Simulated scan of single mutants.
Amino acid sequence: MKKQLPIIEVNELLELSENPNLKIFDVRTGPDSKSEFDKKHLKNAVYVDLNSDLAEIDNPKNGGRHPLPKFENFIKTLGKLGIDKDSHVVIYDDKNGANAGARFWWMLKAVGHKNVQVLNGGLQFAENQNYPIASGENYYPKTEYISDYKDWQLPQIWIDDVKNATQDSDAVIVDVRESQRYQGITEPIDLVAGHIPNAKNFPFSDNLDENGLFKSPETLRNLYSELFKQYDKSKITFHCGSGVTACHSLLALDYAGLEIPNLYVGSWSEWSRNEI
């Protein structure tokens, strides 16, 4: 059986639209994201809130701006959203998966969910391709999600591990933020500009082509293969500002057929608030 790709095309989603197990989720973010969803979203999509459904926000100094929720709380959230183990979950946002679409994908993969994909091109591209649009609120009937696991199943590291990695020539820390934030020229969100010592900059935008679609798996494999050739997977860590956009690059790596490396969820938002 052919392995399911983590990216799904608009025409493929249209073909699935009558599948009773299909569950579509809109994970756009921003202060007006819910009201924008209510005005316009893909037909049958349900809104997911990054701050309350995909994170447990506390003090950014301890875990960053979007720390993961407790595993058991996320499992309850999946049931509340109407997802069970048989659900074919398709996720989109309004930033080509770079907003919170890829974060939700990573979290579902990390609880062992098999059937989850991110929509290539997101909301805008689907609308341009004449995917049916709806308005108003929408919900799926609640379920009970049963996971085979008790904790996250994808690799993560924490701030002390990152500190050690900054001094380890066999490790690489990858910062996926745009180059101006990495260089410390601008910092629109966090308190301090700059980057983690010895981090390399691979902006997430390099995963996309000029149309805002993911580059082909072959192109992405070539883009990242040198990085993966040089370092052991356990020594590769991806991060961003708050552990959300980094998942876009992890998604790209999975799409390319490469192993998913470490995620540092606290990212720059945690690192920059600690005197290290």
Rank of each mutant, 00 (worst) to 15 (best):
F214L: 02
L208Q: 02
G194C: 13
A171M: 09
S169A: 04
T143R: 12
E218I: 05
T143E: 09
S205M: 05
F214M: 04
W152C: 12
V162I: 13
Q153W: 01
S205F: 03
Q153H: 01
D160G: 06
Y145W: 04
A171C: 12
L208E: 02
Y149G: 00
S179T: 14
S169R: 07
Y149V: 01
W152L: 08
Y149I: 04
N164I: 01
I185E: 12
E218S: 12
K200E: 15
D170S: 14
D151C: 07
E178F: 10
Q167G: 05
W152V: 10
D148T: 15
N207S: 11
V192A: 10
T166A: 07
T186I: 14
D148C: 13
I157L: 00
I146W: 03
S179Y: 08
P197G: 09
V172A: 04
E178C: 07
D209M: 01
K163W: 09
P217E: 13
D168C: 12
K150H: 12
F202T: 08
T166S: 05
F202G: 02
G194D: 11
A165E: 09
A165H: 12
R177A: 12
D175C: 11
V176T: 14
S179C: 10
I189G: 14
D148H: 13
R181P: 02
I189Y: 11
Q180T: 15
K200M: 14
T219Y: 00
K163D: 10
D160H: 02
P203V: 10
L213R: 13
N198W: 03
E218H: 02
D151M: 03
T219V: 00
I185W: 10
P217L: 06
E210G: 01
L191E: 15
L213F: 09
N201Y: 02
G194I: 07
E210K: 02
S216V: 08
P197A: 12
P188T: 09
Y149N: 04
A199C: 05
N201W: 04
I189H: 07
E144H: 11
L154C: 00
D148P: 06
P188G: 09
F214E: 00
W158N: 13
D209G: 11
K150E: 15
E144K: 14
T166P: 03
I146P: 00
N164Y: 07
Y182H: 06
